[in-house]
Design a protein around this nucleic acid. Structure first.
Lengths: 141, 141
DNA sequence: CGGGTTGTAATAGGAATGGTTACGATGGCA
DNA sequence: TGCCATCGTAACCATTCCTATTACAACCCG
């Protein structure tokens, strides 16, 4: 399990927030979301913090506190979620600089960066076709 | 630096093998490849082992040992490389099972799997458009 | 002001990775 | 046949990242 499950957790939280909204529940606490995702509330507060910074959710503090979607679930795509929580690129370059004396070592990094950027862009485009609303509809089916 | 640099190392090795071939050098040892990638020969033997299992390179043992491409560099794509060395999916599902009592926790995994599969497929398609020969040409330009 | 919740720091455990050493297996060549 | 360079792989370590957990200050509604 090397790769992040952060996108999964964030998508799960957003879907749950949208379901709560449809049920007439204004907001959910990190405890309530954590119970569905089956993890610690702090993990959720961190993930939801990323989503808040990206403008996807709003948080209220105080006694009647909790999280809710900042805009319609039809207008939140998986690309938005990915951008909000994924820090690392999908594929990494060399850990230690390649040997610049060798023609391949010297010139490979910009070429690989191009290739990885193209592929990641295609990945993002595919994600942008799915919204939280779509996904919740499928989940409930 | 969470994500793998294995694809990078493997692509680098293949480009270097192809350059050696163009220069008339039949094969390279793991030491020679490691010198260009700037890492340990054992790392290269591990990566090249993956590539060998995928049929992209051949290895000879004994005194005159070394690695060489198993087929023309024009027919090895970055998708082949990715498939050969990437063990983990690009995005992971939940680390611990979500709560099946909750409708979202119960139904979200197949939906997410679909979305991730679609996006990964788009990623792979983009990679399949670049061959080792293409990349080496760009590197040497 | 009281109580419940967010926001975040500190820390720990576990997993994966790259790196390193070591050594048996292989096979060309003297 | 025996040497020796090199592959193939196991074992181990250090580092890094992720999730989980505890703790607590900041916040704000009633």
């Amino acid at each position: 399990m090397a790769s992040n499950s952060r996108v999964t957790i964030a998508a799960h939280a957003l879907a749950w927030l949208e379901l709560a909204r449809r049920r007439g529940q204004g907001s959910l606490t990190s405890d309530e979301v954590a119970a569905s995702v089956n993890t610690n509330p702090v993990i959720l507060r961190r993930s939801l913090g990323d989503l808040k910074r990206a403008g996807l959710v709003t948080a209220r503090r105080g006694t009647r506190a909790g999280f809710s979607l900042a805009r319609p679930a039809e207008e939140i795509t998986m690309y938005d979620v990915w951008m909000a929580v994924a820090a690392e690129p999908l594929l990494a370059l060399h850990r230690s600089e390649p040997n610049k004396e060798c023609p391949v070592g010297n010139g490979i990094q910009p070429v690989l960066t191009d290739v990885y950027d193209e592929a990641s862009s295609a990945f993002g485009t595919a994600l942008s076709r799915r919204t939280i609303a779509d996904m919740l509809d499928r989940i409930l089916k």
